[in-house]
Design a protein around this nucleic acid. Structure first.
Lengths: 237, 237
DNA sequence: CATGATTTTTCGTCGGGGCTAAAACTCAGC
DNA sequence: GCTGAGTTTTAGCCCCGACGAAAAATCATG
């Protein structure tokens, strides 16, 4: 029974695990430089930390060829993501935080909150399955069901969609999207794409708007079924 | 105007400031060893940190003769104490924490919470003036009114009192006091003192109990009725 | 006022987690 | 297969905040 205990990781370790999981789509190994960029650290620092994580069995490191989370690392990462998302949901729901301001606060609290606190928050919220950005909240047992929604930028002209997720990015972008009414649950019609990777034109709440590529990529949507106008909503936040 | 900005102190710094303020009753300087004991650090470490705090202008250090908080240090300490107490109150009131379990959680959260979060919590609670242990919560502007209640252990036989404050100590003691019903608001009658620094006998909720000195010292009370705390007030009962 | 006990400070280290500069490796293109 | 660009790792360093051991200052006391 040489198992590591799942207790007090340092803040830095937790941040690395989250970042690695974020970058590690479908298990492809994560490069040092990608991590360095995301975390705003030098590549040397990242290599250094990775060595430590590998020693503790949280990642598997193939030198010069990237890292990926181990079983234990994945568990740990999910725990932190759960914390983060529950906290975000709680702050918005119970303390009146705005959608765009909540991320930074949660980013700090997630490292200081006990499991008990997080469970109490989840309880107070009625155990939501999605956070305010539409991302799924892992269960306390570490289960997540990832849903892969297409980005708004990939949707063809004329389609009508409902926003399902807006990935947590920087405040400014979120605030801007919020202003436009572009958050989970909102219905949007894609009016057209400007050529050469140009902006996307959408109609939202009757207004026509133009959205840059970068923004359109973080807005993930679900296609609304074909014809019958009006009725089919399923706001399940 | 070379003022230091009141932003991101490290966790260690915040803990030291709180501890210094705690020990610094009425401005008498705090010894290195007292701090070391309270914080569970070696005296060498404490000296070291104190040098840093003095350089940053948070304390005044007279080598070999103790430290005291500077103006700025006091402000900072009060900010942290406010955080701590608001968080404790919130956790109990809104998240169902028990009186004895809340301290440890608040101890971590107070270093990770923004001012905004603390103000929102205070708002949600209706800006309470006392925390769950009966201690006054400094205002956001850094005002506190300390009330000096006598300890239960100093109360003369026969007096009837109401508990006003139970200073935040370790979980075990708080849990024990809670079991006995000894928390702010409870009325207690002092039945007698055993000799030679022995236990205090009290009647609470009809039950007679015996309380060790250590416990009786952390329970601060207010005398009921016009009594003086000598022995002579034999009012009724 | 001298001396031993106690407290505080200094000194040298250590681990965590950053950094830069230099070396080592990988890989694309010839 | 070599070579140069780009990436990753190593090497050496720093700061923070902890430590123990040793030196210095203070205090207590005869």
């Amino acid at each position: 029974m040489a198992t590591q205990q799942g207790g007090a990781r340092s803040r830095a370790v937790e941040d690395y695990l989250k970042a690695i999981r974020h970058l590690q789509q479908e298990g492809s190994p994560v490069s040092t430089s990608a991590l360095a960029q995301l975390l705003d650290r030098s590549p040397a620092s990242v290599t250094n930390m990775i060595k430590g994580l590998a020693e503790r069995g949280l990642v598997e490191h193939e030198p010069y060829h990237g890292v990926r989370l181990s079983e234990a690392g994945e568990r740990e990462a999910l725990r932190i993501i759960r914390r983060h998302r529950v906290i975000e949901a709680y702050l918005i729901e119970k303390l009146g935080y705005s959608w765009d301001r909540v991320h930074a606060e949660a980013e700090r609290l997630e490292h200081a909150s006990s499991d008990e606190l997080v469970e109490r928050m989840a309880e107070a919220l009625g155990h939501p399955e999605l956070d305010p950005h539409g991302s799924p909240i892992p269960t306390a047992e570490g289960e997540v069901t990832e849903r892969r929604h297409p980005a708004l930028s990939e949707i063809g002209e004329g389609a009508r969609v409902i926003i399902r997720e807006v990935s947590d990015a920087d405040e400014g972008r979120l605030r801007y999207l919020a202003q436009l009414g572009l958050y989970p649950g909102t219905r949007v019609e894609v009016v057209g794409h400007e050529p050469f990777e140009g902006p996307i034109r959408v109609r939202v709440a009757g207004q026509e708007r133009s959205l840059g590529r970068g923004l359109a990529e973080i807005v993930r949507v679900e296609l609304l079924g074909g014809g019958h106008d009006g009725g089919d909503d399923a706001t399940d936040n």
